[in-house]
Design a binder for these strands. Sequence first.
DNA 1: GCAATCAACTGGTCTGACCAGTCGCCTGGC
DNA 2: GCCAGGCGACTGGTCAGACCAGTTGATTGC
Lengths: 261, 261
Amino acid sequence: MSAESPAQIGFQPVRPVRAYQRVAEQIEDRILAGELPPGSRLPAERELVRQFDVGRSTIREALRVLQSSGLIRSRPGDPLGAEVLGVSPDTLSHALGRLARSHLSSPAELIQFRMVLDAESYRLAARLHTEEDLRRLTELADTMGECVSRDPHDPHAFSEADAQFHRVVAEASGNALLALCARAVHDAVVGAIEGELVRAERDGDAGEWMRRSVVHHREILAALRGADGARAARLGREALFEHYAPHLPEPDRKRLRAALD
Amino acid sequence: MSAESPAQIGFQPVRPVRAYQRVAEQIEDRILAGELPPGSRLPAERELVRQFDVGRSTIREALRVLQSSGLIRSRPGDPLGAEVLGVSPDTLSHALGRLARSHLSSPAELIQFRMVLDAESYRLAARLHTEEDLRRLTELADTMGECVSRDPHDPHAFSEADAQFHRVVAEASGNALLALCARAVHDAVVGAIEGELVRAERDGDAGEWMRRSVVHHREILAALRGADGARAARLGREALFEHYAPHLPEPDRKRLRAALD
DNA sequence: GCAATCAACTGGTCTGACCAGTCGCCTGGC
DNA sequence: GCCAGGCGACTGGTCAGACCAGTTGATTGC
């Protein structure tokens, strides 16, 4: 890029930058730089009006943008001002959820994507886990077992422990980005497929798949303990496939099978 | 969930929903449902004021939210009103870029994540590619070869063809979601590491890594043609590792190596 | 000591205004 | 007849000021 003609050097097309954008950028930069840590408060809107020397609507539009990005949260009547939330995976979840709802991708793709992310979490976690991770995972698997042996079953607590299990594995992978994405996809899947799950529970075979799921999780845990990443990854993929495939039409199922490896 | 005490059934905490949220939701739903396809136009703000029967600031805050989500784009003076862009991966890119810039994740994690996504793209693409995909990939590999054999090198066109290559592979994987995420991560990596790359180019070994990269891409292409997903995935991981590892400190490099498999 | 009240905030919304930019029409000169 | 220029009639961006409902904390009354 060092060989451009002199006439083209130094000048770039200038696009108008809106006032609310500059306000939002300044605040976002402070948040990302850590100067406004999560939990801290922004000044009140009318105070920001004075500091930035713009109208209140400009301030409000900037705050709306930040809020829709999940960086801040505001509450009417709060004398402390808007609360800084910091970077969170919620934006990712939202964006993924939107993609999942749009014609751009199908539920099957969402599930396949989750198979990929989960499997890679397992693979990495098998190498990098700590004893503490294993302890927590064992505990969660036990919790899941209790939920299924209890009468009546407690599918809510079960799902909670299940989600927690995946979250711990993702964190054990040592890659926060992977963990955040895996969580976002997990949330999106749950949000998109929830209706199916409820129906399946009502069909009465809830105990059956919960039991199978517990077995799966224990096998995965054993593979993690043995540092067998490939096996853990394969087991994770199979578990997801078995769980979701029955609810999908054949073409989708075939595509999902391609991700089984 | 069917066994709750009667007193807890039927009532859920009602949280106030802001007017701008309802406006934004209505418009977003129409866009996601395809009733407002990309390229179509929203009514003018003052017309929306009439239709939704709210103040203009409410309309504007709703439009700001949609705009920051990348769903619409507005331009001053446009008599046609805001343009509908539809769901795009830009939001994902933004969110990932923010995560990459925040203290929550490091460049190494970003690269590792890209290794994961690319490798899985290869694995799936090896199974599901079409002849047309192979033709385009061959063409792009040739283009990359030309860029490197040209004198002087054309690193810009090279990077462009490289990005295109990855994009075609991701699309050949048959999973649009995976493709979008891979592209978003690619963009985030490029955005985050660009400074490093420029430095490397200036160091004069540009020709060398470009040549190696071409070889890598041809090997991957051969693996894809042979439907050898595992091999393609491994090659893809190695290519990224070789490219980025030299620019990282040792601890990060070690962690990246864990993703090599 | 405690509960009800009140005043001073907050964010959410509306109104009305002005500006600069953009477009389409319309008119004037060629 | 054609085209350039200008003139509205729009657009979105911004500002100012107002009101409302909700929150909070001090004050008041018991």
